[in-house]
Simulated scan of single mutants.
Amino acid sequence: MSWPAGIALFFATVVFMEGFAYVMHRWVMHGPGWFLHASHHAPRHGNWELNDLYAAIFAVPSILLILGGVQLGWWPGYAWIGAGIAAYGAIYFGFHDVIVHRRIATRYLPKSAYMKRIVQAHRLHHAVEAKHGTVSFGFLWAPKPEALKAELKRRDRAGVRAPRGRVAAE
């Protein structure tokens, strides 16, 4: 496979992964996979949460595709696809775990309109503690925060956590 074709396949995979991540987040993590993902919507105690297992689960296809495309004689494009999956994982880790959730200390503050939008959309996603009723499931693309706030309001703020320091009304 030529380098230009491989690089195109790599970038196409990164773009595809945003759609895949949206589907997995909305219908698996907030569906039958909630037993792992619920830990991500609760206050974290320590460095790890059950939700972190998703990173290992999603790394398996990437590793297998790279191994197959490079070492096992499979179609070389599989290595580029596996690398694209790994790149999306690295981008996700940087945005999600470092910038949004600050699991690694950094002094970075979002300044661009794009980064502010992504961070705010993810925080609005986490405003809901429950399995259902949340908004914004993508990560590298997100609706405008105003639209997300309006949707939460339309849902009568069902499942929205109380502000810190206050107990939710019963």
Rank of each mutant, 00 (worst) to 15 (best):
Y92I: 01
S39K: 09
R44T: 10
N51A: 15
Q120H: 13
H96R: 01
P32S: 05
A127K: 10
G82E: 02
L109W: 02
L72T: 11
L53M: 14
H45C: 10
L65D: 02
P43G: 10
Y78D: 03
N47Q: 15
G73D: 11
I81C: 06
N51G: 14
G73Q: 15
H37K: 11
W80H: 09
D97T: 00
L109H: 06
G46Y: 14
H126W: 04
P43W: 03
A121R: 06
K116V: 04
L109S: 07
G69N: 08
V28G: 01
L67Q: 07
H25E: 00
G94Q: 03
A121I: 14
I57E: 13
V23F: 11
I91D: 01
P76Q: 02
I104K: 01
F93C: 00
A83E: 04
A90N: 03
L36C: 10
A83C: 09
M17L: 12
A90F: 07
D97I: 02
A21T: 13
L72C: 13
V70R: 07
D97A: 01
H25Q: 02
Y22R: 12
H126K: 00
A42R: 14
L50F: 14
W80G: 04
L36R: 07
V98G: 07
G68L: 08
K116E: 13
T13R: 07
L124T: 07
Y88G: 06
H125M: 11
V100R: 05
L50D: 11
R26S: 04
F20Q: 08
V14H: 09
E18H: 10
V100H: 14
G33P: 02
W27A: 05
R103E: 08
L72S: 10
V60W: 14
P110I: 06
V28S: 00
S62F: 08
A12Q: 15
A121F: 06
V119A: 07
G19V: 13
G89P: 05
D97E: 03
Y92P: 03
W34E: 03
G84T: 10
D97Q: 07
L67I: 04
R26T: 00
H30K: 06
I81T: 05
H30R: 06
G46R: 15
I81E: 02
G68K: 05
Q120R: 15
Y108L: 10
F58M: 13
H96P: 00
G31L: 00
W34M: 05
F93S: 03
R102E: 01
I99W: 12
D52R: 05
F20S: 08
W75A: 11
A59S: 14
P76Y: 04
V14E: 06
Q71E: 11
G68Q: 11
A12E: 14
G68C: 06
P76H: 03
L124F: 10
G69C: 12
I81R: 04
M29F: 11
I66P: 02
L65R: 03
R103K: 11
A21Q: 05
H30L: 01
G89E: 05
G69K: 01
T106Y: 09
R123N: 13
T106C: 02
A87K: 04
I57H: 01
I85Y: 05
I63S: 12
L72V: 10
A12L: 15
A38V: 15
H126A: 00
S62G: 15
H37N: 04
L64N: 09
